[in-house]
């Protein structure tokens, strides 16, 4: 792996983390994007994270690339993705193909976390038909993204598309926006090019890799399985509906 003399050295891996609500078009966009990456001569692999079930792997398998499914069960799927990043890279490195791009499709259920890290490419896939208030609601997986891919523009009018885009820019002024179509693949080549421009990271650098946005405050008694509702059973960082936050416990 360290044999730099003969050009066979391990050059690290480019990582793209793709987040977005269920049904936004992540898999559809990624399938076209991966085809472009293959045409450009890269060897991508995909990890799909979900909670209980996914059949996205069947769709990815048709591309003939390595695919790993991770089910987080009762853990927050984004926390699960973050926590397993090193394992994913190890898995990719162990494939027989020389994997140089790792794409992680997240479950996209939590609006409070975003599993983007500082040296990976954060791609947010967002559905334009979800209405112009959506960009205000979705939180860090939009505000922390490098790339925002807006899908389903084909089924709304041009001014609606433009307004949606404006709202995305209001929430994340630095992002690069692409209008993409998960059905025709239009715009996915640009996403592929963005991925190829990401810098590669070495496995050993992952030890120092950091999240862009801290995961939500939590660890309360509910997190560890308490089922009783009443306040008196709860400890930890607790926020009341009136906004009052306190820490209860040792």
């Amino acid at each position: 792996m360290e044999d730099k003399e003969n050009g066979l050295s391990y050059k690290g891996i480019k990582i793209a983390i793709v987040a977005g609500t269920p049904g936004a078009g992540k898999t559809s966009v990624l399938i076209h994007t991966i085809r472009s990456l293959i045409n450009l001569g890269f060897n991508p692999a995909v990890v799909k994270i979900d909670c209980l079930y996914t059949d996205d792997d069947i769709r990815y398998k048709k591309l003939g690339i390595p695919i790993l499914v991770g089910l987080s069960k009762d853990m927050c799927p984004d926390h699960f993705a973050i926590y397993n990043l090193e394992e994913m890279v190890e898995w990719a490195n162990n494939q027989s193909q020389n994997i140089d791009i790792l794409i992680v499709e997240t479950a996209g259920l939590c609006h409070r976390c975003a599993p983007y890290t500082k040296n990976t490419l954060g791609i947010c896939v967002i559905d334009a038909t979800s209405g112009p208030n959506t960009p205000k609601k979705v939180g860090p997986f939009l505000t922390g993204a490098d790339i925002v891919a807006i899908t389903k523009g084909d089924i709304i009018s041009q001014p609606e598309r433009e307004i949606f885009r404006e709202r995305v820019l209001e929430m994340n002024p630095k992002c690069r926006i692409y209008d993409v179509n998960g059905l025709s693949g239009q715009g996915c080549e640009e996403i592929a090019k963005e991925i190829t421009k990401t810098k590669s990271i070495m496995h050993e650098e992952l030890e120092f890799e950091e999240l862009r946005h801290s995961a939500p405050l939590c660890i309360c008694t509910l997190c560890i399985g308490e089922r009783r509702v009443s306040k008196k059973y709860h400890r930890g960082v607790l926020r009341r509906i009136d906004g009052f936050t306190k820490y209860l416990g040792e």
């Binding site: 209405g131 112009p132 208030n133 009018s157 609606e160 307004i163 404006e166």
Partner: peptide, 18 residues
């Protein structure tokens, strides 16, 4: 289809801004 839940005025202002 106007999926946007906004008034005509907000729509015009938002579009002009974009």
């Amino acid at each position: 289809n106007f999926l946007a839940d906004m008034t005509v005025e907000e729509f015009i202002l938002m579009h002009a801004k974009s």
